[in-house]
Simulated assay, not measured.
Amino acid sequence: METSPSGSPLLQVRGLAKQYGGGFGRAAPVRVLDDISFEVKRGEVVGLAGESGSGKTTIGRSILRLIEPSAGEILFDGSDIARLSAGDLRRQRRRMQYIFQDPFASLSPRMTIGEILSEGLAIQAIGTRRERLDKARAALQAVELPPDAVDRYAHEFSGGQRQRIGIARALILQPDLIVADEPVSALDVSIQAQIVNLLRDLQARLGLTMLFISHDLAVVEFIADRVIVLYLGRIMEIAPCDRLYEAPKHPYTRALLSAIPEPDPDRPRERQILKGDIPSVASPPSGCVFRTRCPHAIEACAREVPRLEEVEPGHFKACIRQDISA
Rank of each mutant, 00 (worst) to 15 (best):
M1T: 07
M1G: 10
E2I: 14
S8E: 15
Q12P: 02
K18P: 09
Q19W: 15
Y20Q: 04
G22C: 13
G22M: 11
F24V: 10
A27Q: 15
V32W: 06
F38W: 03
V40D: 06
G43H: 07
V45F: 10
L48Q: 05
G53V: 02
I59Y: 07
S62C: 15
E68F: 07
P69W: 03
G72I: 05
L75W: 11
G78R: 02
D80A: 03
L84V: 06
R91L: 11
M96K: 10
Q101A: 06
A105D: 10
L107P: 08
S108V: 08
S108L: 10
I113W: 08
I113V: 15
I116F: 04
E119C: 07
R130G: 04
L133Y: 13
L133Q: 13
A139Y: 04
Q141W: 01
Q141T: 10
P146H: 09
L171D: 07
I172Q: 05
Q174N: 15
I178H: 08
A186D: 12
A193V: 15
V196G: 09
Q203L: 08
L211C: 10
L211Y: 08
V219F: 06
E221M: 09
R234C: 04
I235W: 01
A239H: 01
C241A: 15
Y252H: 02
E270L: 06
I273C: 01
K275Y: 04
A282P: 06
A282G: 14
G287T: 07
T292E: 10
T292G: 09
R293G: 11
R307M: 14
R307D: 15
V311H: 00
F316M: 00
A318S: 14
A318K: 00
C319Q: 00
I320K: 01
A326V: 13
A326I: 09
